[in-house]
Amino acid sequence: MRDRSVISSNVDVAAAISRSLAARRPGAPTGDEPRELYVRFERVVPAEASSPRPPAAEIGTWEAFLAWSLELTRAHAGFVVDSQGFVIASRGNTPKDGFEGIGAELCYAMDQLRRINPTGGELRLLELQFDANRLIGLRADAGAMGTILVGFQGTRSIGDDTRDTLLRQLGQVLPGLA
């Protein structure tokens, strides 16, 4: 009996996705990127157009800073690493094992990578694109505390404007947080 009541193309899409999901093993990649059926909102509206601008006085803790910066960057998670490589704050979709390993490795990597360009000064920003996600590290001076690294894990890059906004905000709030 022919199904007269359902638009077939909608079912075709559902069929393809559901079969792929049903066959998938845990942790395995989900296969090729699906055909573009939709226009993505996140590609149309720049992050800066909706970025929050709370006054610096409102950010009194690292958690508050991360909450603000996660909204700005649209990252899935954020963390702060002190100069000793210890994670002192994290927020968002934290991995099961936390960010301790990632934070320490990112600190070390940025220390090493600055040697690529010895005349370039300090390495302030590192963006790494992995298969599963994007990792961003942002370093700032925290005076007597040494350097602070703020890390983000998500899928989006941060543009120059977002980077500058983050650094500017970090510079304003850091004396109170460090």
Binding site: V6, I7, N10, V11, V13, A14, I17, S18, S20, L21, R24, P29, T30, P34, L37, Y38, H76, N93, A132, N133, T155
Partner: peptide
Amino acid sequence: LRSIGQALRVIEHVSREE
């Protein structure tokens, strides 16, 4: 049935990206 593809799309995206 016509709309279930939308939920499946989101599940697929979350399982891929998050």
